[in-house]
Nucleic acid binder design. Structure first.
Lengths: 161, 161
DNA sequence: AATATACTTGACTAAAATGCTTGGTTTTTT
DNA sequence: AAAAAACCAAGCATTTTAGTCAAGTATATT
């Protein structure tokens, strides 16, 4: 299983989209500021998310990204798979050729673990995360810290990390 | 969760110890040949395993390493924790200060996942692995490929990777 | 039509982690 | 004494990570 900052960033960004779904297309600049992820890194991630049809994009002023499905139908496992390409704890990509042409001593153990992790993440949807109180609290804090709306963009000061 | 080759190597080496427990102290050179892990890397891993009291060492000819407890009482999670120092999927080491002084949007998700992985690995003992047929088959293959005993070391040819 | 805004692509890179290697030293047995 | 093993420390080459940067292309507003 590859579980790196990349996958975490992708899930965080997708959750941000889910939370602000009502507000129409969300720009990467907004996500960048709220979640403190560099804009160009987000661009890379969203390129993959779009190719995996997890988000739709709209160009031009007023554009941005939206979830392409209801948040309830998007599993965390899908998001990580979309950006990390693999959800696997073995070294042989489950082929069983870890030691020469054959399997190593612990091959089955890592396969079982991979299944376990995948099942866990496959059964958690963005929708279920949005409903959690802890998530809502953090989202409220982030929105208050950076209260940007399309109506009063002029009010905001430049963001400084 | 850090689940790298390091942790996999450590578990594999410990499983090798468990399988050959009857044969008295096992040298790292034996493990290195059977499991195809470099000797000096094994030394580093076993330094940590010893500090965590998972193995006992004996120096000098006829020396080597043994499990310090019955294989049934050694959880895979302990081994990985001993060499990787952490079994954690969050970026903040569970402190909840992932975003400035506060928690990030997905903090709880990664905490839950870490717990899940830890529970899985905490409930698998070396003993339960030794009993598995797949493991026994691989072990038999490895022993046949490199039939070194303390009695006929002179028979073996230099190992070539 | 001009412009602002948004997305796309690809090359590049600093820093960290990984998996070793080298070169020793001690300790114990024979 | 010689050999076999554990023990230790420093360094290193490669790969991966987590981005940045630059130069675009596309779209919507005005």
């Amino acid at each position: 299983m590859r579980l790196t900052t990349k996958g975490r960033y992708a899930v965080t960004a997708m959750l941000d989209l889910a939370i602000h779904y009502e507000q129409g297309p969300i720009t990467l600049a907004d996500i960048s500021q709220r979640q403190e992820i560099s804009l160009s890194y987000l661009e890379q991630l969203f390129s993959k998310l779009r190719k995996n049809e997890l988000v739709n994009s709209a160009r031009g002023p007023g554009g941005g990204y939206r979830l392409s499905r209801p948040a309830e139908d998007v599993a965390v496992a899908e998001i990580i798979a979309a950006v990390d390409e693999t959800v696997d704890a073995t070294r042989c990509k489950r082929k069983g050729n870890c030691q020469h042409a054959e399997r190593c001593l612990t091959h089955d153990l890592w396969c079982d673990l991979s299944d376990q992790i995948f099942d866990f993440l496959a059964n958690i949807s963005l929708g279920s995360l949005v409903e959690k109180k802890a998530v809502q609290d953090v989202a409220r804090r982030q929105d208050n810290a950076l209260p940007l709306n399309r109506e009063d963009v002029s009010l905001k000061e430049p963001y400084v990390a």
